[in-house]
């Protein structure tokens, strides 16, 4: 046996266990729920669930609402995390030290507790409202809890730490020498940022987008507890359709649609990875 074939077999042997796990816990359930989602009430195959999903006023507003929350959250998380990571990478001092020490804290707080904390903080008569009333006699605050804004704030809380960590590690991989040499030839900060730093961290940025997107679109706890009654995010709606209306097929259709949205994201991501790989091996 040639060495190459041996290596190939080793490679396959290493991949197969994880592939099998993947197959059993991901691929099979997806296929089952896909089949389930095409069944109508009498067990016959039809498009009735998807028709309902895209024509029902309530469902359509749920989808739009979910996408709105997701996109706004992704954009905000990326802007804030990237700014934070860049700041931590290129500055030193007390502020940076404190940010570095504290920015991971949200990861260690269970999401239910964090969500209730947000309700206490931002609710109608919450701490923030009381502080504003005492200090600035601001009488009325916009509604944050039981509203889209509340969900987005919660998503920021959940997603910023990890994204910052991810981007931070990518930024630390940008060699100082590159930046210094660019500075030597007279490039300004903006120019360095757009010509060097951004392209060098673009791949990680894409990873971060994928992760935040999937995390937000599939989130449940925060939207369930602080979201409005209608429209709902898809996760909440799925739970309601499955658990309360007991319409398994409809829930499967929502689940599959959510999966499609996620795999759409994943597709671009993988596509980009392959391109990268090709250009490297070429």
């Amino acid at each position: 046996m040639s060495k190459q074939v041996k290596m190939g077999m080793l490679g396959l042997a290493l991949v197969i266990p994880s592939f099998l796990v993947l197959f059993v816990i991901v691929v099979i359930p997806i296929v089952i729920s896909l089949l389930e989602s095409f069944k109508d009430k009498n067990g016959r195959y039809s498009f009735v669930n998807y028709e309902h999903l895209f024509t029902d006023k309530l469902m359509r507003s749920n989808i739009i609402f979910t996408l709105e929350v997701t996109i706004v959250s992704v954009v905000l998380v990326l802007i804030i995390s990237y700014a934070l990571a860049v700041y931590m990478r290129f500055n030193n001092g007390v502020a940076v030290r404190w940010i570095r020490r504290t920015y991971m804290i949200p990861i260690f707080i269970p999401s239910v507790i964090a969500t209730y904390g947000l309700i206490q903080l931002l609710g109608n008569h919450g701490w923030l409202a009381r502080i504003l009333l005492q200090a600035f006699s601001v009488e009325s605050m916009p509604r944050i809890i039981f509203d889209k804004k509340g969900i987005i704030i919660a998503q920021l809380w959940f997603n910023i730490p990890f994204t910052t960590m991810l981007l931070g590690s990518a930024l630390s991989a940008v060699p100082n020498s590159v930046i210094e040499s660019a500075k030597d030839v007279g490039a300004g900060f903006l120019r360095i940022f757009f010509k060097l730093i951004l392209p060098l961290t673009f791949k990680t940025l894409l990873v971060a987008v994928t992760f935040v997107f999937m995390g937000v679109i599939g989130s449940f706890t925060a939207p369930f507890l602080i979201g409005p009654n209608a429209p709902q995010m898809l996760g909440v709606s799925m739970e309601q359709v499955f658990g309360v209306f007991q319409d398994k097929q409809m829930a499967a259709a929502i689940a599959f649609f959510t999966f499609l949205l996620c795999s759409f994201m994943g597709y671009f991501y993988i596509q980009n990875m392959i391109k990268e790989e090709r250009s490297r091996s070429a």
Partner: peptide
């Protein structure tokens, strides 16, 4: 990569 992204998706769904 597929495994990673899918597992993540599933994990977050499970979390929910």
């Amino acid at each position: 990569m597929i495994a990673l992204s899918l597992t993540f998706g599933v994990l977050s769904a499970c979390g929910g």
